[in-house]
Design a protein around this nucleic acid. Structure first.
Lengths: 339, 339
DNA sequence: CGACTGCGATGAATCGTTTCATCGATCGCA
DNA sequence: TGCGATCGATGAAACGATTCATCGCAGTCG
């Protein structure tokens, strides 16, 4: 049924070892022999069996990447940059989506470890550190993405989410808002917890302002809509005058839900997080905290390559990027012309 | 270094065959033996080597999926639905992004074939049919996605893009537009060619209306912006009064580029394609042609499973979904309340 | 002329799992 | 008691590519 190196060898009148050498570009084969082998490969339609190769070689040439939400442009941008960088290194990136569910994350971790991927990039759901340690200890190079690792065992690439949260809340305070609602969840996601923490820091010591928390099940547009309808059901006296959403998808959902009944930004200012490409062109352009996702993806692959090349534990590195506040109309500030 | 079944067998005091039987849930093992083996597995931290398993079994349990643009919410939605459906079947989906580039597509086709994936879902870039035939002939079950196959060799799941294009253009004509510009490319993408063809059909026989074509390099927001600046550079007499964009990303780009200088929809109506979740909440909510991506993804996996189960060539099937026009403000029609 | 060198090519051993023919023990039944 | 059937368990063979010790041969040198 399947064509193997043995068939190719026979057809070309050489040994299997020679076929393998040709396939792998070893220098010790005479040009005319190379040609004969390649002709046989083409004629028989031979396709290398990667399982057999890997079995012998020990590891694959792919790296696995597990993101929290493949539907979020932030993560697809991150993945795209990582893929680009990895292809330059001759590696493919296999993308998996944990969907913020620990079970799905576990499933893909198993899959990737069984496949003996060369390395792993992951935005952990939150309680996966034990599993990751185990996997890491068994020899899978791992880099945490969008997650600062206090753990010296892992390299990581992250953005200072506490600072980002602080910037968002400070901006709202500066522009006169006093009743801020944080919309986001689940709390086990570090990103969510940190952004909330940052917002709390900005409020610290301010007796004239308050921060309430409206938890969501996930970070999606739908959850944002649901949050909006909850906000609208509140009696006017309890209603916030600003929303800080844990990411742009939520912010967009809130915007959609609130837009018909309430004036944004007049009565309700909105700030999101991630500055996804769509944020700028919303019905009310969204103020957001920008993360340099392209550089993050590249840097993550670079750290991973370094660990793959030398798994000695000496040189773990934690790269922390600074977020940047991008002010647009949704927070009630005139959009600067040309922005 | 690595722990193998042999080590587990030794540690549990059984044979390798028994370990394998336990691992695969074969019924012929005594419960207490099962327990002993599982204990050894846990204690030694054994992780099955998928390469070896596949080598023996012949094919993997994953299916490969190659999409044109992982940054497009339409494709991520499609992939997500496919993944959901495949997980129910006990299979993982490995997602790859051809980025509309034939070379990247070829690279991932090679990768997936070498990995002997159980099946393949693909939105081909356009000129890949020869390669696909070869791969298919060598035994990889394949289903074309978002691409009607005139080719009886492949099952396919698609939307009638010609009808979609017709609907979009007809809508613009009905609402009084006469100078329509089609923005999209590259033409080798069947989706682009078909939507344009549909638009042409709607214009057929109309001497009072015209359709010009503004080609783009790809289907991205950036290309849409570029197209917008080209449109704005035209002398007023040549300027179109409507744009039909080949997908929503382009349409959003056009909207962004045009918004400051020109009134949408007054002077320029815009219709997009895909109805991605962000379309409804744009600065000017986007009229678009909706595709049922979730059902498409599910159906594609179902067709693929059928072909995996029985690769006999009798029952290729071509599922064609009907698109649906969703009218919003960007085409100059009042958005119905509550929509 | 014989020993030596280096180039090309060889093919058996190897990776870790699954499969399957086989075996020993236990049990039921005549 | 003896025979076959059943249940659990065994372990060698097989999957297909890569590796590496080895070999034949031609050319070179002393």
């Amino acid at each position: 049924m399947t064509v193997s190196v043995r068939d190719v060898a026979e057809h070309a009148g050489v040994s299997v070892g020679t076929v393998s050498n040709v396939l792998n570009g070893k220098a010790t084969v005479r040009p005319e022999t190379v040609e004969r082998v390649l002709a046989a490969v083409a004629e028989l339609g031979f396709v290398r069996n990667d399982a057999a190769r890997q079995l012998r070689a020990g590891v694959s040439r792919s790296i696995g990447m597990i993101v929290l939400d493949a539907g979020n442009p932030f993560f697809t941008g991150l993945a795209r940059a990582a893929e680009q960088r990895a292809l330059a290194e001759g590696r493919a990136v296999l993308l998996a989506n944990s969907d913020e569910q620990p079970e799905r994350e576990a499933l893909y971790l198993d899959l990737f470890e069984q496949q003996r991927v060369a390395g792993l990039l992951i935005s952990p759901v939150g309680d996966a550190m034990d599993r990751l340690h185990a996997l890491h200890g068994r020899g899978t190079p791992t880099v945490l993405v969008d997650r600062f690792s206090d753990d010296p065992g892992f390299s990581s690439v992250s953005v200072d989410d506490v600072a980002g949260g602080r910037m968002a809340a400070a901006h709202l305070l500066e522009t006169g808002r006093r009743r801020i609602a944080f919309v986001g969840g689940p709390r086990r996601l570090r990103q969510v917890a940190d952004r909330l923490r940052g917002a709390r820091q900005a409020l610290r010591g301010r007796t004239d302002a308050s921060l309430s928390v409206l938890p969501t099940r996930a970070l999606t547009v739908d959850d944002g809509r649901r949050a909006a309808s909850e906000l609208l059901r509140l009696p006017a006296s309890d209603r916030p005058d600003a929303v800080f959403a844990a990411n742009d998808l939520l912010a967009i959902g809130v915007l959609q839900g609130v837009l018909e009944e309430r004036r944004v930004p007049g009565e309700l200012a909105i700030v999101g997080y991630d500055d996804i490409p769509f944020a700028a062109s919303m019905a009310v352009p969204l103020t957001s905290v920008r993360q340099p996702y392209a550089r993050m993806g590249e840097r993550a692959v670079e750290l991973l390559e370094r660990e793959i090349a030398d798994p000695s534990r000496a040189d773990r590195e934690h790269v922390v990027f600074e977020p940047e506040l991008v002010v647009r109309a949704s927070s009630g500030v005139r959009e600067p012309p040309g922005a």
